[in-house]
């Protein structure tokens, strides 16, 4: 992993993002079916992939949790830290999806919160993974912490898809979500750009995840070497230099 460095798929993301953004604003024409402000339909490009990737990363967390508890190398703390990194990335995605969705809801329905099933289920999802980090912070012993939180990550990954099905049955909840826009006949240009964004966002989040894994591996090797001066270097890398990755860097 160390030798790979900046791979091709990472370098491609910058130009891809520039190209897709330009396409989204100049090639895709605003949608008129059911949107108060046709330009606001462009939320599809950012918001929908974020929500999907949030769920995806929570499943990745569940996968690593199963590997930690039941897999061949069970008890390997590296799997446990992967669970927590995947949860961090997933939490960042779901938070971004929620906030972008609230802005859209303000434009579309004149209220940032309207008890839409998607809003409620993503809120519960966020609460599950905030609880995950709450549990993580309350145990000090690494092996025990890893076992408890992995068990909870599995519980969360099982509950998450059920929530999507269950939440619309709540009395308080009624849907306003323009689902038919995505499922039926989305303009082919729009579909193409949307898929492109999904792929690029997947790349960005995978990159974030990979960096976290490498940083953890590096820290483990440094502390193995046991040189206290090296710890300072790792701390310097650890400190985020930009504000662009709120939530993902923490």
């Amino acid at each position: 992993m160390n030798r790979r460095g900046l791979a091709f798929w990472k370098l491609l993301q910058g130009p891809a993002m520039v190209g897709l953004t330009l396409l989204a604003y100049f090639w895709a024409k605003p949608l008129n079916n059911g949107f108060q402000v046709p330009e606001a339909a462009r939320i599809i490009f950012w918001h929908v992939p974020m929500a999907m990737l949030g769920l995806l990363w929570f499943f990745v967390a569940g996968y690593h949790a199963v590997r930690f508890l039941f897999g061949r190398g069970s008890g390997d703390l590296r799997s446990d830290s992967r669970v927590s990194f995947a949860c961090e990335v997933g939490l960042a995605c779901t938070l971004l999806a929620t906030f972008s969705g609230m802005i859209f809801a303000q434009v579309q329905w004149r209220t940032p919160w309207n008890w839409d099933p998607k809003q409620v289920s993503i809120l519960v999802l966020i609460m599950i993974y905030v609880a995950y980090f709450g549990l993580r912070m309350s145990v000090d012993e690494p092996q025990l912490r890893a076992r408890l939180t992995s068990a909870y990550a599995i519980l969360g990954a099982v509950a998450a898809p059920l929530l999507m099905y269950v939440v619309p049955h709540l009395p308080q909840v009624q849907t306003l979500h323009p689902t038919q826009v995505l499922t039926g006949g989305l303009d082919s240009k729009w579909r193409l750009i949307w898929m492109g964004f999904t792929v690029v966002f997947l790349g960005v989040t995978a990159w974030l995840f990979e960096l976290r894994v490498r940083l953890a591996a590096l820290e483990a090797r440094r502390s193995e070497a046991g040189d206290p001066e090296d710890q300072v270097v790792v701390e310097a890398v650890r400190r985020p230099s930009g504000g662009a990755t709120t939530g993902a860097a923490g």
Binding site: V124, M127, I128, A131, G134, S138, D140, Y152, L163, V167
Partner: peptide, 23 residues
């Protein structure tokens, strides 16, 4: 096992038990 923090249970239970509450 997590240092006897009783209040955590209420937060941890919400996700897994919401389907039961809804039904």
């Amino acid at each position: 096992r997590s240092g006897n923090r009783g209040y955590l249970a209420v937060i941890l239970g919400l996700g897994p038990l919401l389907p039961v509450l809804v039904a």
